[in-house]
Write a protein that binds this DNA or RNA. Structure first.
Lengths: 223, 223
DNA sequence: TGCCAATTTAAACGAGCGTTTAATATTTGG
DNA sequence: CCAAATATTAAACGCTCGTTTAAATTGGCA
């Protein structure tokens, strides 16, 4: 894995049609490696090699390793952030469609498993490189949308009256996120891979648990 | 934090009454630093300095940095493992005392917050240093006790008949563990510190959620 | 008393890291 | 067609890390 030879490319200013070729290769390699193994576990040389270039290009285009990480992250996280935010921006509520919530969260988490790894590596640790940024830019605004929806649901009599909104949010996040964070352990132990049919079963299970725990029972009794 | 001076101790063979003095100091410093920041984030020099000695002593007593980590971990994890295992070894069941379960888990997790950090740092990552060991020695046996208890509860008619035992276990773990793993983010965002009163509230909340979601309702209706 | 084994020290080693440099080749614009 | 700007390379720099070494100092024991 170390003595891999890089095929050197032509020096000098490249023709205009193929601009920023190396830059994109670096971003792509950074996405693949950083998000799989974490910032510290991947060396600048590895990324450069994977991108078919030299570490000096990281400095040339992104000043340093962290600059490359940041540039890559911005590209990677934006569509996901929008996707999740959209699943909360339902002014149509307050039926509090828990099934839609849970499904949206877990489907995106399953489709972008790097998110769980990234969060565990860079935002959960006390001195995680992106902890404060994540809290400011992602967690706080989304949590405020979240609790807002839940408050409205409670006002509409859907959420059980004596359930704390913050605890309800925490329960939902726990049930939806933990399985992905712990997948490298719970997968082998339970023999479950969070995709396809098993994922759908878990979604159904989670919907059931938090519906029973958080929502006033009405028509459920009939089934 | 770097230019701290170490007070050199007397050379030569120490008097017999104070044996393995440095060894214990190293173990104690390793416990404090490794479990707080993770194996990679702490240097051998830091630990040696914190223990009032030199890095060479790590080699002398534990061969290398990893040896020190392992020795420290064994000491640290054993009482916790026994404590948690005991909370499952209730042949007295099957009333499936969920409150006792949840309380035992979350109280120990709260009293030993380093566990969550350790698990996130060293066992959840795909190439976590203790992932396979943890799966073999801790996760698998405990999960088998866990599912056994749940199976018995279902046989006794306590657990809802159509709830999968593995999913039930996963839900319980999610609700009980995730809050500690994510505490550095959810703490600031929700304004909740998992200790004292807030911890008790969360325990009650979790008991309620998973009782409603997993257990057949009987006397609950009356309240 | 004197030697041996145990313990500790200061210093250095070698590898790997992120980063920087200086040279070089190429395209573009005047 | 030439000069300036640009992109890339190979090499090395300086630092930190885990680990090792060689010497120094002491207690126990014959």
């Amino acid at each position: 894995m170390k003595t891999q030879r890089r095929q050197p490319r032509q020096r000098g200013r490249p023709p205009v049609e193929a601009e920023a070729d190396i830059r994109n290769a670096l971003l792509e390699a950074a996405h693949r490696l950083f998000l799989k193994h974490g910032f510290d576990k991947v060396t600048a040389r590895e990324i450069a090699l994977a991108a078919g270039t030299t570490p000096a290009m990281i400095h040339y285009y992104f000043t340093n390793k962290l600059g490359l990480f940041r540039a890559m992250l911005q590209q990677a996280i934006e569509p996901v952030r929008q996707q999740l935010a959209a699943s909360l921006a339902t002014d149509a509520a307050p039926p509090l469609d828990l099934r839609a919530f849970v499904t949206a969260y877990m489907k995106t988490a399953a489709a972008n498993q790097w998110i769980a790894t990234f969060v565990v590596n860079e935002v959960f640790p006390e001195h995680g490189r992106f902890r404060t940024t994540f809290i400011r830019e992602v967690a706080t605004p989304m949590m405020s949308m979240f609790t807002q929806v839940l408050e409205r649901a409670r006002a509409g009599g859907v959420l059980k009256a004596d359930v704390d909104v913050h605890f309800a949010a925490l329960s939902l996040l726990s049930l939806c996120i933990f399985p992905f964070i712990s997948r490298n352990v719970t997968g082998p132990v339970l023999g479950v891979q969070l995709e396809g049919d098993a994922l759908q079963q878990l979604i159904d299970h989670n919907v059931r648990v938090c519906t029973a725990g958080l929502v006033n029972q009405t028509e459920q009794r009939l089934s």
